[in-house]
């Protein structure tokens, strides 16, 4: 089929992830249409925080694709540096999320405060877990890339990261804008 095994495996992973996140988002939309009160609850999320995190993830996707480009050119060191920039982006995203959740929980909005907040913490938490996984894998890949070894992995981990970005692109309007 002329697709490297690693990349093929990555696409299959993303196919299964599509169903996981698709099911979650589909359920959210259904419940949201049923419960008008969710708009009031969603009004307590901070749009600017969500927008900033979207900007951070978009920027980290840029560094991931530039790392892939550097790997294609055989520049493993540059690819490793750019992957670490992407990891930094993931770190900033998680830090902002941590502050945001701390604020919301302090305000009394916990996972048991209503259906909206249950979805909010489940969807954003599952997404954050994927960000953490991506950061760990990216760090391991950056170690080998810095030695100019296994450069194809840079593209594979990049594809994963872009998918995480795409998921957030849909979570952002659902959780932060539709009020």
């Amino acid at each position: 089929m002329d697709v490297p095994t690693g990349r093929l495996a990555m696409w299959w992973v993303l196919a299964s992830e599509t169903v996981i996140f698709g099911g979650l988002l589909g359920s959210y939309v259904m419940m949201r249409l049923r419960h008008g009160a969710w708009a009031d609850q969603a009004a307590n999320t901070n749009t600017w925080t969500g927008a900033f995190n979207t900007l951070v993830l978009l920027t980290s996707s840029l560094s991931a694709v530039l790392a892939h480009q550097a790997a294609e050119r055989g520049d493993g060191l540059k690819a490793a540096r750019l992957l670490r920039c992407t990891i930094l982006g993931g770190g900033v995203f998680l830090m902002v999320k941590a502050f945001e959740w701390t604020h919301e929980i302090t305000e009394g909005f916990t996972i048991t405060s209503g259906l909206f907040w249950s979805f909010y913490y489940t969807a954003a938490g599952l997404h954050a877990a994927h960000v953490v996984a991506g950061m760990v894998i990216m760090f391991i890949v950056s170690l080998t890339a810095a030695r100019n070894e296994e450069l194809h992995r840079v593209e594979n981990v990049g594809i994963y990261w872009h998918f995480v970005d795409v998921v957030w692109i849909f979570l952002f309007p659902l959780l932060y804008i539709a009020k």
Partner: peptide
Amino acid sequence: MVCRYFMHLNIEKKWVAYILGFMLAIM
């Protein structure tokens, strides 16, 4: 745009897009 330009789905084998599209259809 992210799928097309960053994930390079536009230059990937067609069946990859079909697999992902099939998953969306299941949803």
